[in-house]
C-alpha cells in the first residue's frame, strides 16, 4: 500500500466503530486514483479492514459504481427507467449508442468513454437525464448530447468517478 493510501485508509477507518465500514469508501478512493478497482486495491482494502481479498471482491462486485476493469476517463450513465423513458430516453439511448459505437457497459474504441444504461437517477422531472462523471445533465436531447460530447472530449478529468 502506498503511504498516501494508508493514510487515507486510516482516516476512513477512524470514522466508523468497525473498520469494515470503511471498505466501500476506501475502494471509491482507490478507484478515483487508479481509474478502476485494481487487484492491488482489493488487496489493500483487505489488509486495511482485515478481511479476505475474496470478501472484498464479493462486496465490491455488488455495487454498480465500482468497476473491476478499466473504464474511460468519461463515464456516461443514461437513465432508462419509466420517467426518462416517457421523456424520450429510449430514443436518446439509441442515439448515444450509435454515436459512440458502443453497447451498454462498453467503452469506446479509444478507451475514453464508458457508456452505461442505469436505473432511475432521481431527476425524473427533468427527463431524460444522464450523469457524466456523476454530474447531472438534465433534459438531454440528441443535439445537446452531441455538443456536450465535444466539450467532454476536450476535457481530461482527474477521475471519472470521484470519491469525494
Amino acid at each position: 500500500m502506498t503511504p498516501q493510501r494508508e493514510r487515507r485508509g486510516a482516516e476512513l477507518v477512524a470514522k466508523y466503530p468497525e473498520a469494515r465500514s470503511a471498505l466501500v469508501p476506501f475502494l471509491q478512493y482507490c478507484q478515483a486514483e487508479d481509474g478502476y478497482v485494481t487487484d492491488q486495491a482489493i488487496a489493500d482494502a483487505a489488509e486495511l479492514v482485515g478481511i479476505t481479498p475474496a470478501e472484498v471482491e464479493s462486496t465490491a462486485s455488488f455495487y454498480s459504481l465500482l468497476f473491476r476493469h478499466p473504464i474511460g476517463k468519461h463515464v456516461i450513465q443514461v437513465c432508462r427507467t419509466l420517467g426518462c423513458m416517457l421523456g424520450g430516453a429510449d430514443e436518446l439511448r439509441e442515439h448515444i449508442r450509435t454515436r459512440l459505437g458502443v453497447e451498454n457497459l462498453e467503452t469506446t474504441a479509444d478507451g475514453a468513454i464508458t457508456y452505461e444504461e442505469v436505473e432511475c437517477l432521481a431527476a425524473c422531472d427533468r427527463a431524460p437525464v444522464l450523469q457524466h462523471n456523476l454530474e447531472f445533465v438534465y433534459n438531454v436531447t440528441p443535439e445537446k448530447f452531441d455538443s456536450l460530447l465535444e466539450t467532454w472530449r476536450r476535457e481530461s478529468p482527474a477521475a471519472a468517478l470521484p470519491a469525494e
Binding site: I51, T52, A54, E55, E57, S58, S61, F62
Partner: peptide
C-alpha cells in the same frame, strides 16, 4: 471461516 468462496455480482 476461511472466506475464500464467495458470491460474486448480484
Amino acid at each position: 471461516q476461511e472466506r475464500t468462496l464467495i458470491v460474486e455480482d448480484r
